[in-house]
C-alpha cells in the first residue's frame, strides 16, 4: 500500500506552516502533503492544535507563515472569485456542527446547492434527503438543530459538508459522540466515498478503532514541541514507532512517569 505513494498526485501541500493566535504559537513550522483520494488523519492530544491546522487548511485564518496549496493554488494568497472556486471543491464539517439554527436539517443541506448550482428545487430536496439517508438520519428532515441530539447534529453537519459532492472533505471529529454502530457505518461510508469517488478526506479524530479502519496515513501533532512527531500508517506506527508517547497513544495507555 505504501509502495506507490510517490506516484500519487498531491492534492494539498502544506509547506513550512506556522500557526499562531496573536503571540501564542500553536504550530511551529510543519510541512506535509495529502494525496488525492486518500484518507488522511490528523491526530494528537486535546488542545494540541488539530482544529487549528484544519481551519488554516481551509483558509479560514491566515497562517503566521508558510503556504497551504490546494490543487496548485495557494489558499492563503488567492482572493475573491478564485478563493470561492477553491472553496466550492471542499466541504467542511466543524467540531461543533455549526448548523444554522433557524433552518431545518433539510434546509441546512439544501443551502449550498441553492447558492452554487442550478439544480431544481424538487431535485435539491431529493438530493438533500439522500444525503441525510446516507448518514442514517432518514426521517429527521424537518427537525431544527435545537430538536436534534449532539450526535445527530454531527451527522447533519457531515451531510451538509457532502452536499455538493466536493473533491476534498475536511471533517473535525465526525464520530465523536456517536454510538459504535453508527460510528462504524460512518467509517464504511467514508471508505466507500474515498474508493468509489476518489474523494480526499482530511479527518481529525481520536477514535482508535476508526483510525485503524479508515486511515491511509496519519500525522501526529505534539503540544510541547508544536511539531509533527509521527507520520505514516497507523498500524505501523503502533508497532514500530521509536517514540514511546506515540506508541502509548496508539495502545491507549496512560503516560508513564519515569522516576529516574
Amino acid at each position: 500500500m505504501e509502495d506507490k505513494m510517490e506516484d500519487r498526485e498531491v492534492i494539498i501541500s502544506v509547506k513550512n506552516f506556522t500557526a499562531a493566535y496573536g503571540a501564542n504559537v500553536i504550530i511551529d513550522n510543519i510541512s506535509f502533503d495529502v494525496y488525492k483520494g486518500e484518507i488522511f488523519v490528523i491526530l494528537g492530544g486535546s488542545g494540541c492544535g488539530k482544529s487549528t491546522v484544519l481551519k488554516h487548511m481551509i483558509g479560514l485564518y491566515p497562517p503566521a507563515s508558510g503556504q497551504i496549496i490546494i490543487e496548485g493554488e495557494d489558499i492563503t494568497a488567492v482572493e475573491d472569485e478564485k478563493k470561492i472556486g477553491i472553496l466550492k471543491k471542499i466541504g467542511v464539517s466543524y467540531q461543533s456542527g455549526a448548523l444554522f439554527g433557524s433552518m431545518t436539517a433539510l434546509e441546512n443541506i439544501m443551502l449550498p446547492m441553492e447558492e452554487f448550482t442550478n439544480i431544481t428545487t424538487d431535485m435539491r430536496k431529493l438530493i438533500a434527503k439522500m444525503k441525510l439517508e446516507i448518514v442514517g438520519l432518514k426521517g429527521s428532515e424537518n427537525k431544527l438543530p435545537s430538536e436534534l441530539s449532539g450526535g445527530m447534529i454531527k451527522r447533519v453537519a457531515l451531510a451538509r459538508a457532502m452536499a455538493l459532492d466536493p473533491e476534498i472533505l475536511f471533517l473535525d471529529e465526525p464520530s465523536a459522540g456517536l454510538d459504535p454502530i453508527t460510528s462504524a457505518e460512518l467509517d464504511q461510508l467514508i471508505i466507500n466515498l474515498a474508493k468509489n469517488l476518489h474523494i480526499t478526506f482530511v479527518i481529525v479524530t481520536h477514535e482508535l478503532a476508526s483510525i485503524y479502519t479508515i486511515a491511509d496515513r496519519v500525522i501526529m501533532l505534539d503540544k510541547k514541541v508544536k511539531k509533527i512527531v509521527a507520520t505514516g500508517n497507523p498500524q505501523y506506527l503502533r508497532d514500530n514507532s521509536k517514540d514511546p508517547w506515540v506508541r502509548q497513544f496508539f495502545n491507549r495507555e496512560a503516560e508513564v512517569q519515569t522516576a529516574n
Binding site: K129, M130, I134, L197
Partner: peptide
C-alpha cells in the same frame, strides 16, 4: 460496480415524500 455501490447506499423508497408536517 463502484457506482452501484453508491446507489446501494439508498433504500429503494427514499423518494417517499417527506411528510411535510
Amino acid at each position: 460496480k463502484k457506482y452501484t455501490q453508491l446507489l446501494n447506499l439508498f433504500h429503494p423508497d427514499t423518494q417517499e415524500a417527506v411528510g411535510e408536517v
